[in-house]
Design a protein around this nucleic acid. Structure first.
Lengths: 114, 114
DNA sequence: TTGTATGTATAAGAATTATATGTATATTTG
DNA sequence: CAAATATACATATAATTCTTATACATACAA
């Protein structure tokens, strides 16, 4: 993520998992481009954050890998495992809670402002 | 913050600044209790995170300190400096962008789902 | 007297991310 | 044709942030 968004660390895994849930399977570079597209360039996932995150989630059993060769270049497609699907649901719940809590802090008058 | 919320690192400074903006001045322990209250116990700011964050923001010129003695105990009241007020506004904008971007990722069909 | 609440603080380590760099092929631009 | 850009993966080093554990001190309740 860009420095300007460093405040919201920890969302990277949630973003990756949610995109994989929607798209079925994706490769690393594709993920960076998709996030850039969706956020109109406001979020940029760096390789130094992306690849360690992917490898860690694979090691934790949340992702499966499938290698393809396209145009002479290697692509590693990642997809969610069953555990990964469960974990994604859990992280989405956390994200919703986080957003709700932040909105309650920012706007204390609106008790149900979401 | 609790382990379950470690995903959203970096929000601590934003939370502290916004509370100080609303309350005028607060002391450390008061901040932890206020966050616990607002979030119904879902977010717990630990001392190990809070005090280094307060000291850093003070060193950066975003906070001013005022010491009081209450019931034999020392309280350090923190309040925003002028630079702190500007910084708070900037961080609030970042928070709004972050939430909007996350909602766009999570719910790609709703272009204005916020 | 043991635990809980209030109040501030630091040290050691874990986790996550940024920055920089490296390798390699394909395509576009000058 | 050469150079730059895009595609594609990866790691090493450092910075930042947070957790866990610990420390000190007062007050009150069980």
């Amino acid at each position: 993520m860009k420095k300007q968004q460093q405040l919201y660390k920890g969302s990277l895994n949630t973003i990756i998992m949610k995109l994989l849930e929607q798209q079925g399977k994706m490769y690393g570079y594709e993920i960076t481009q998709k996030v850039k597209e969706i956020t109109a360039g406001e979020m940029n996932i760096t390789e130094g954050a992306l690849y360690p995150a992917l490898h860690k989630m694979e090691a934790e059993g949340f992702l499966d890998v499938e290698m393809d060769r396209v145009d002479g270049r290697i692509r590693k497609y990642y997809k969610l495992t069953e555990n990964g699907i469960t974990e994604t649901a859990s992280r989405m719940e956390e994200l919703e809670n986080f957003i709700r809590n932040m909105q309650n802090i920012v706007n204390p008058n609106l008790k149900f402002g979401y």
